[in-house]
């Protein structure tokens, strides 16, 4: 059972994979590379140098490789499987992650709205679809904005296919 299949607030507490890591401040390139990868994965930042994802085979592997990367760069890292002791704690974590994704989806909706008035909607559709895929991969607790953002990009795609109807 992965936390991924449970909406926040359900009775079953999920399992989380935690990465605890520390890296030298300099050189900053490997530290920034790790930070970018963690952002891309959509981790919840529990505290300085401690991040979490709902545990499944994939998220665990992703964090394990990043742990090795931190170690190869002269840092220290360890991977843990954990369960929050209180439901409220997990809800808060999930809600924070959902809100982070919601903000990303809202940005997509804004860009779709702006693109609808522009001339090159086809390029905007390609870009926003790629962005939706990227967000989707790190969306463990889908917020309502997810469906809205997908609908906004779909509408833009339909407008691209039939521009005459749009003007009517």
């Amino acid at each position: 059972m992965t936390a991924q299949s449970q909406p926040p607030g359900t009775a079953q507490r999920g399992e989380w994979v935690l990465l605890s890591y520390r890296m030298p401040r300099e050189p900053s390139t490997p530290r920034i590379a790790v930070w970018r990868k963690l952002k891309r994965l959509g981790v919840a930042q529990l505290s300085d140098g401690l991040v979490a994802l709902p545990a499944d085979a994939r998220t665990r592997e992703q964090l394990e490789w990043i742990a090795d990367e931190a170690i190869e760069a002269g840092g220290a890292a360890s991977i843990w499987l954990a369960r929050p002791t209180a439901f409220a704690q997990e809800r808060e974590l999930a809600a924070g992650m959902a809100e982070a994704r919601a903000a990303e989806y809202r940005a997509v909706i804004d860009q779709a709205d702006q693109a609808a008035d522009g001339t090159n909607t086809a390029a905007a559709v390609r870009k926003l679809r790629a962005e939706l895929r990227r967000i989707g991969r790190r969306d463990f607790f889908p917020p309502p904005e997810r469906a809205l953002a997908h609908a906004a990009v779909r509408a833009l795609a339909e407008q691209t296919e039939s521009p005459q109807e749009e003007k009517a």
């Binding site: 590379a33 394990e64 490789w65 742990a67 090795d68 990367e69 190869e72």
Partner: peptide, 11 residues
């Protein structure tokens, strides 16, 4: 696998 020569290295 983690920590082996034939694993992920340097991205």
């Amino acid at each position: 696998m983690r920590g082996v020569e034939l694993g992920h290295h340097g991205g």
